[in-house]
Amino acid sequence: MVFYAKRLAHMVFVLWAIATILFLMFRLLPGDPTIAYLDPSFTGEQRQMILHDFGLDQPLWWQYVLFLGNLLHGQFGLSFRQRLPVTDMILSVLPNTLLLTLVALIAAYAFGALVGALMAWKRGGALETIGIPLVLATRAAPEFWIGMVLLAVFAFGVGWFPAGGATSPGAVFTSNLARYSSADFLRHLVLPAFTLMIYLQGLPLLLMRSNMLEVMGEEFVIMARMKGLPERTIMLRHAARNALLPLVTAFALGFGATLGGDVVVETVFSWPGLGRMLVDAVSSSDYPLAQGAFLMIAAVLVTMNLLADIAYGLLDPRVAHGRR
């Protein structure tokens, strides 16, 4: 329990520090510090109201206290352009981003774990000779470029998939569940998810391969052979099962990191998600929205880092029992 409490305190500290950095960054902008919250096109009355709401007529230290207080209540202010609460805007696109990330990540880890295990099992085979440079090349390719090539071939070329967005224009859904499970949404999801997957599979694949190589030399794998178990059982139940443990941590860490990396993929495919919202907000100087989107991404990242630690403990019986 002490361990969890410590990790949680650490997470809160990191989040606080990030929020503070962000607060200072937006106020270090040249010119009027209120630029972070105020749009010149606001009417005088709106201006006064918001200045007061956010305490922008107060000294810097008090503004900081108010900023943190607002954060604790989940308040990020109003978007300049849409004039809507930032929190609501973020929450409306969050499911799109989470779904995209999760689908791509699960596909990438399933593929990576399987192929990585196979590569190790067939050490020195053709799969490895061709596979390793290919995997390194996918790690070296910019995600948005992979997306562009896929778009040109599969959307504009053969026309199997739509060129962008999350749903067809004019599509109406009775509920959120109906929306996310509709064939239309899934068809839009394929290319961006596949792009992300290609980028993401390299890490679990290489990790799985090196873990497998290590585990395959372990005594219990040799014993499994001596027991006359079928090769497949030895590979999957014993070697792969043990080699999989570190991948769980990598998965959770990957989820946090991917959310930030989604930015480019969402932009290529005009996917209405958090990353694209951030890009749009930054390029149109919609600072409250940019600040909110950034903090949201950072919060997910830091939370997933915490979960990575906890998940590892739960999955490895040695660690799990050691901690009690």
Binding site: F13, I18, M25, G256, V263, L278, V282, A290, A293, A298
Partner: peptide, 22 residues
């Protein structure tokens, strides 16, 4: 070391974008 923890908590590309814009 606390500082490294904080920097590692910053989402990479989003932070680069915000910095580039600023």
């Amino acid at each position: 070391m606390r500082l490294t923890d904080v920097v590692l908590g910053l989402p990479f590309l989003p932070f680069v974008i915000v910095l580039a814009a600023l």
